[in-house]
Nucleic acid binder design. Structure first.
Length: 281
DNA sequence: AGAACTTCCTGTCCGC
DNA sequence: TGCGGACAGGAAGTTC
């Protein structure tokens, strides 16, 4: 499940492989993968002959700035959602069963979007239009976890304003962008706070610990190429040491790595939460 | 306005 | 062995 560290890893791979070459065209194998424009012909016409200047990341969104003949050519946006993968391979590589969109590059190379559960989305934003006007999920996104404005004071202020549970607040992309179910559980474990703790009753020291834990957990995962917890594949199809690093996520019934107490699992708003009943208060 | 609930989707796993 | 149901879950849409 790609969250901020995995998306950041993909971004770095995309910058290494896909920039400064004119897109040759593509193929849309599943029409509803396109969020905007809806028409595959319009989407492909929009990106063809454009070069990717650079890939940016905002939360879990990937955004490629496009140029055609040194002029602004809009944006290509991608959200991997649950099971989306971007693979950099030879165009002749066997077509995966769940391949959804193919983008053709020079010298027989291809950026292939593969997505089992089909929740992933692609956007093409025409030049001159604000990217957030088309990729509407960017509107209202909270600060990046490593941005200067994501401070303990900011987090405290936002948490004070909601009566929801801490776990729910961490998954709210308008509070902080990029955290999903895995890193929410891990950050809560690292800060010693239960997912069910009411967001607006934290002590300042607890907010401070949570803020630090969010940054530490994400930074560690980025340093390991986003392969720390999930079965995520990077651009070259290399996966990681799944399960090795989790303290809470997916460890229901297994002994806590700190105190040995069995990890418990709860369902909160349709999402599973894992925590140590002894280490987390 | 804020919060909760529903929906989208398919592969895997588990119990009977 | 086969089958039904639970489960995985980000974000948009709907409802209260």
């Amino acid at each position: 499940v790609p969250e901020l560290p995995e998306v950041e890893t993909v971004r770095r791979g995309l910058n290494a492989f896909t920039t400064a070459q004119a897109l040759q065209g593509g193929e849309v194998l599943l029409a509803r993968t396109l969020a905007r424009p809806v028409s595959a012909a319009d989407f492909l016409a929009g990106i063809t002959q454009s070069q990717i200047v650079t890939w940016q990341r905002r939360g879990k969104y990937l955004l490629a700035r496009l140029q055609r003949e040194d002029a602004d050519a809009g944006w290509l946006g991608i959200h991997l959602r649950m099971t989306g993968q971007l693979l950099w391979l030879e165009r002749a590589a066997p077509l995966h069963r769940h391949a959804r969109v193919r983008l053709f590059f020079p010298e027989g190379r291809e950026l292939r979007f593969v997505d089992t559960r089909t929740f992933g989305k692609l956007w093409w934003v025409p030049p001159g239009e604000p990217v957030e006007a088309v990729v509407t999920g960017l509107q209202g996104l909270g600060p990046e976890p490593f941005a200067p404005e994501f401070t303990p004071a900011y987090l405290s202020d936002r948490l004070q304003r909601t009566r929801r549970l801490l776990k729910t607040a961490l998954l709210d992309q308008t509070i902080v962008a990029g955290i999903g179910n895995i890193y929410a559980d891990e950050a809560l474990f690292a800060s010693g706070l239960r997912p069910t703790h009411p967001a607006n009753t934290l002590q300042p020291s607890q907010v401070e610990r949570l803020h630090g834990a969010i940054q530490q957990v994400l930074q560690t995962a980025i340093a390991k190429g986003g392969t720390t917890f999930s079965d995520f594949l990077n651009l070259l199809g290399v996966d990681g040491d799944y399960g090795d690093a989790a303290f809470a996520y997916g460890r229901t019934g297994e002994p806590c790595r700190v105190c040995g107490t069995p990890i418990e699992r709860l369902r909160l708003g349709g999402r599973s939460s894992h925590f140590c009943p002894r280490c987390q208060v």
